[in-house]
Simulated scan of single mutants.
Amino acid sequence: MALLTVAVCAVLAGATSFAAIADWLYDLDEPDQARLGFTRGVPAGTTMWRLLTRLDAGVLSAVLAGWLRSRTPSAPIRPRRYRTVIAVDGKTLRGARLPEGRQVHLLSALDTSTGIVLAQVTVEAKSNEIPAFTPLLAAVEKVLGSLTGILFVADAMHTQTDHAEQITSRGAHLLLQAKGNQPTLHAQLKTLPWAQIPVGDRTRDRGHGRKETRTVKAVTLHTPGGIAFPHAQQAARIIRTRTVDGNTSRETTYLVTSLTAPDAQPSDLQKWARAEWLIENQVHNVRDITFREDLHQARTGTGPAVMATLRNTAIGWHRINGDTNIARANRRADRRSRDLIDAVTSRYTSTQ
């Protein structure tokens, strides 16, 4: 337990490798080492490596997600149609190339309201993200206790009938894109009478030389079985028009949701559809840029997944404490190691 606490603290302070985790422990003064449980010296770096490459990555992810949730402040008053939105996305660890040449690929689920990665599973060799979705869903349910009312958003790869059945059977909802991997569904959505449907919501963003307009239309699917996707209650079309340096591009996206119109207005669908990108922008990119994940060549045992989980934990910790610049938060934690140890090891009553 002491070594795992060290690993969590070290990555919260910006450690990017097994060696850096061991160095962080070595660099502490003796009183701080003693507070972590090391009163007769510290273990060798190889001991830390052996532990972190043999841990059950799934169990570790669940334990640390639960630990973060227990330390998340109570949410303020929420709007009437507030809904917990979980974004699902995969990431390849490009530096973790196994002996047979395969790279480790992980599928994760992010609570977009807190910034906590609730679950992460390793995609099996010679497979893809689709079979990993059900284990991920089960892992999220284990952490939360129930999925009732929760909305899952994901890219078009996960617009699968089995996924829809798995989600709705647990009392949850879906908002999924329709693209070429579901040609019948995509064709049906594309030929809906969009010209006759009024605009439901329009947003305009401007910044960094870019202008973007997003226009949403939504329609209730009245005919049961009329759309080639189970539990689809509404269809939505989002047109994004972007102008950068005088060049304008236009992108059209079609989506289906299991939520009815009273529970999901076009403005809600707009917001929730954009939430899908949060796992890429707020987690995966931070792991790459701040923690240099793609340069880390750990490949033994569960080491790659364990290190990714520790990075997820660091990002989630800093976000629930109000930080948006994770690199700066890492540096501050490293400068204040005593405060960091106090915060991580202190008892805390759950507010969730």
Results as ranks from 00 to 15, higher is better:
P99C: 06
G209M: 09
L176S: 02
G95Q: 00
S61G: 07
L52H: 08
I77R: 15
G45Y: 09
L269R: 00
K211W: 15
H158K: 02
L174N: 02
A119H: 04
A187H: 06
G209C: 12
T349N: 13
A264V: 07
R292E: 07
D29S: 09
T260S: 13
H186M: 10
R35G: 07
V117D: 01
T5D: 05
N247G: 11
D29N: 15
P193E: 10
S61D: 08
N247T: 15
V286C: 04
A333H: 05
A7K: 06
G149V: 08
A109F: 00
H222P: 13
Q352V: 13
A96R: 00
L136V: 04
S146V: 15
D32H: 13
G149C: 11
N325R: 08
T159A: 05
S113C: 14
T253H: 12
S346V: 14
A20H: 04
V140I: 07
V6M: 05
L110H: 00
R54I: 02
E293R: 00
P135R: 06
H208A: 05
Q182Y: 09
Q196M: 14
G246V: 09
A139D: 03
L3H: 08
L3Q: 09
E276W: 13
R331W: 13
L51I: 07
V216N: 01
R237N: 06
P266M: 10
N330Q: 14
